[in-house]
């Protein structure tokens, strides 16, 4: 796959959706859906993507789509898949169909985690895509368990006695992998070819698979709309958001910066970290955590 081919592949998310200018998820969702030539049914959790693409009487979806509620995209797609299997068993349907559940970080790391866990454990044949913009953006930038330590959100505002969110970000990849699934990948919208390849693998995986993709949010990250892709790139270059995959029991690192940039380079691009830039102690602590997680990941990837 290259950019030219990707640009010309059949698109399933139409224009006229109402996500903010510079939003990260439209290109993520388009790229993922381009990665299979089979028919796709989408189940989407409540959140920015669902809201901005299905404002009645308009829909941006060129493929069958269902939104049920915030916490149940995975359970919903399980029912759809069961219906498909039942009809296939009866010989009433011949097509091969792919099932895609999508949620933001709130709908995945938090309120939808149980539903996701259930579907992963049952071995439902679907791809779960989490577009992770690291907070509840749709309701106005509240902290989620995917919000990184130190980020300023409307429920963890930085103030005289606080530097923003206290807790570290939850490890979704590890949680998903612990279910014994065959494929999990972390990707970023700055490298759409890598994302495409991972989505293709996910769709071809037997049983459940998951794609965790960083999704820059100019509104919540307080960044310039034109910088979304560049910020995602910095997330990878600082090892804040490593690109890696887990395939049939093996970890593979997809990108290693020649010289990792300091985390402050990533923080500088976003207003949500503005208050941290002079907090040396916290910066050092966060840098330490990033490096520690990176070396753990490298070790996993070196395992034979």
């Amino acid at each position: 796959m290259n950019f030219k081919e990707l640009a010309m592949a059949s698109n399933k998310l139409a224009s006229g959706h109402r996500s903010c200018a510079g939003c990260g998820f439209p290109s993520i969702v388009r790229t993922v859906m381009k990665a299979t030539k089979k028919q796709i049914i989408v189940s989407c959790a409540t959140g920015c993507l669902e809201v901005t693409t299905t404002i009645y009487p308009y829909t941006s979806w060129l493929t069958p789509f269902i939104h049920n509620a915030f916490e149940n995209a995975s359970a919903t797609i399980s029912g759809v898949e069961a219906a498909y299997k039942a009809l296939k068993k009866k010989g009433k349907l011949r097509k091969d169909v792919k099932f895609l559940a999508i949620g933001g970080d709130g709908g995945t790391y938090d309120i939808g985690l149980q539903s996701l866990s259930g579907a992963l454990e049952r071995g439902q044949n679907f791809v779960y895509l989490c577009y992770d913009n690291e907070a509840y953006m749709n309701t106005g930038v509240q902290r989620s368990s995917a919000t990184p330590r130190g980020a300023n959100t409307t429920t963890t505002p930085a103030g005289k006695a606080s530097f923003g969110k206290l807790e570290w970000k939850k490890e979704l990849m590890q949680i998903a992998i612990a279910h014994g699934i065959n494929y999990a990948a972390q990707a970023s919208p700055h490298n759409l070819i890598d994302l495409y390849n991972k989505a293709e693998k996910a769709f071809n995986t037997k049983g459940p698979s998951i794609l965790v993709v960083l999704s820059p949010c100019p509104l919540g990250w307080k960044s310039n709309t034109n910088m979304s892709v560049q910020i995602a790139k910095l997330a990878a270059e600082t090892n804040f958001w490593p690109l890696y995959e887990y395939e049939n029991g093996k970890y593979v690192l997809n990108y290693e910066p020649a010289k990792r940039k300091p985390i402050i380079e990533f923080f500088k691009t976003q207003g949500r970290f503005k208050h941290l830039l002079k907090n040396k102690k916290l910066l050092e602590e966060i840098q330490g955590k990033v490096d520690e997680k990176w070396s753990k990941l490298k070790k996993l990837c070196e395992e034979k």
Binding site: N68, E71, N72, A75, G79, V80
Partner: peptide, 17 residues
């Protein structure tokens, strides 16, 4: 499923299909 919430969610998905 792993809860009644998911039982009804799955039932909705199947019916919608």
């Amino acid at each position: 499923v792993e809860s009644e919430h998911s039982a009804m969610s799955s039932a909705v998905g199947a019916s919608a299909a």
